[in-house]
């Protein structure tokens, strides 16, 4: 709790810098406008102008805030929460792909980890490839995966979820392998003296012991999964989703729209990771681990 003051200070400084940078980056355009209108700008007018331009190089925080409110809260108030102009709609599209990909990736990751822990052949032949797979910039594959799956007739949610899955399975595999191997020799021997079968050892010892590792990986995997979903939306040609908003914004120079989509994505990431954090705390405390 004693971190609150420093954190607030840092956040405050970031906002101050943001406002200052907005003045600095947008000043050129403000001067340009003033020159054409043949008026001299006073400092206060300059500041006011740089913070309220229509297509600024860097929108001020309150402009982004207003845009987010306009496309979320205000739309809800009008009862059009899921219209195509609403950021809630786009967030939902991205969120659904993220969650599906996350679920698939977690499932695949846990299965692979169990295979790797229980099978020497898999451990020695697959594990190096799992690690290599992450040194490949998979996001480069995103356009191809989308186009190819489209050609086979799979479109919509699944191709994006596949990219999310690829990004999120790795942390889960690595974390779960470490977690499933975390019981000590003594504990494993204890299970043997109780004549426990392999499945009993798995369900009663290895799996519970791996939980702290699993949750740590789930947080990383969730963040990666969101990145995958956003990038997966780029090549579909700006149809729907936060990634599409980013792309459309960059096509039409709508910087405020880009920033609002970006902040929305950040908020989404924060909320998703926080939810896992809460589940982690509840689960681990009920298991008597935290």
């Amino acid at each position: 709790m004693r971190s609150i003051v420093p954190v607030l200070t840092v956040v405050g400084v970031i906002f101050a810098l943001w406002y200052a940078a907005a003045i600095w980056l947008n000043a050129a355009w403000a001067y340009d406008k003033a020159k054409r209108a043949d008026v001299a700008l006073s400092t206060s007018e300059l500041v006011a102008d740089t913070w309220s331009q229509e297509k600024p190089r860097l929108p001020a925080p309150h402009q982004v805030g207003a845009e987010i409110w306009k496309t979320t809260g205000a739309m809800v108030a009008k009862g059009r929460a899921f219209s195509k102009r609403s950021l809630i709609y786009h967030s939902w599209i991205t969120l659904s792909a993220t969650l599906l990909g996350f679920a698939l990736g977690t499932g695949l990751g846990i299965l692979l980890a169990v295979g790797i822990v229980y099978n020497t052949v898999m451990d020695r032949s697959v594990m190096p490839w799992v690690i290599t797979s992450q040194t490949i910039p998979i996001l480069a594959l995103a356009p191809m995966i989308i186009v190819v799956l489209n050609a086979v007739g799979i479109s919509g949610l699944l191709p994006k979820a596949m990219i999310s899955m690829y990004l999120s399975f790795f942390p889960v595999v690595v974390g779960m392998v470490k977690g499933l191997r975390s019981p000590e020799v003594m504990q494993l021997d204890q299970m043997r003296t109780w004549n426990a079968s392999a499945s009993q050892t798995f369900w009663r010892l290895r799996l519970p012991a791996s939980m702290p590792y699993l949750f740590a990986s789930l947080k990383v995997g969730m963040a990666a999964s969101l990145v995958g979903a956003i990038v997966g939306e780029l090549p579909t040609g700006a149809v729907a989703g936060l990634g599409a908003r980013l792309l459309a914004g960059s096509y039409y120079g709508q910087t405020i729209q880009i920033w609002s989509a970006l902040i929305m994505a950040a908020a989404l990431a924060a909320v998703l990771v926080a939810i896992i954090g809460v589940i982690q705390r509840v689960t681990l405390s009920r298991m008597g681990m935290a």
Partner: peptide, 8 residues
């Protein structure tokens, strides 16, 4: 943890 690629 944020999707920073979005800054692109």
């Amino acid at each position: 943890a944020l999707p920073i690629v979005g800054m692109a």
